[in-house]
C-alpha cells in the first residue's frame, strides 16, 4: 500500500501534528518511509490463516480479574505534581467547548 500525501496529512492531524511548516520534499520522504513500513508488515499477508481465529493478544492468558476493593489514592497533591498548570486541586487546560468530548 502506498501512502499518499493526503493520507499523511490526515494521519498527522489525528495525532495533532502540524506538517504545514515542513518542506514538501520532507513530507514526500515521510510518506515514502511510511509506505515502506507498511510494505514490510504486508509480508504477513503471505501466511495462510484460513480458518484461524484472529488473536488479539500474543499470549493465551487466562482472564485475570481483580477484586472490587479500593486502595487509598495518592491524593491530589501527588497526582498533580507534574501538571503544567493548576487551579486549586484542578488541572488547568486551554478552554474547551462545553458538552464533553468526542467519545461516547
Amino acid at each position: 500500500m502506498s501512502v499518499t500525501l493526503e493520507t499523511l496529512k490526515h494521519t498527522a492531524e489525528l495525532a495533532r501534528l502540524d506538517l504545514s511548516l515542513l518542506p514538501l520534499e520532507e513530507q514526500n520522504r515521510l510518506a515514502e518511509q511510511m509506505s515502506r513500513i507498511l510494505a514490510f508488515v504486508e509480508q504477513l499477508s503471505e501466511v495462510d490463516v484460513e480458518g484461524e481465529e484472529p488473536m488479539t493478544h500474543p499470549i493465551a492468558l487466562p482472564t485475570t480479574l481483580a477484586e472490587d476493593v479500593a486502595v487509598p489514592a495518592p491524593g491530589a497533591a501527588v497526582m498533580l505534581a507534574n501538571a503544567p498548570a493548576r487551579s486549586g486541586d484542578e488541572i488547568v487546560v486551554p478552554r474547551v467547548l462545553d458538552g464533553g468530548g468526542e467519545g461516547g
Binding site: M79, I91, V92, V93, P94, R95, V96, D98, G101
Partner: peptide, 18 residues
C-alpha cells in the same frame, strides 16, 4: 468513563477533575 471538565464563564481556560 472520562474525567470532567468545567469552564468558568469567561476564563480563557478549562479545569479538569479526574
Amino acid at each position: 468513563d472520562t474525567g470532567q471538565s468545567s469552564h468558568a464563564s469567561d476564563a480563557p481556560y478549562s479545569l479538569i477533575d479526574l
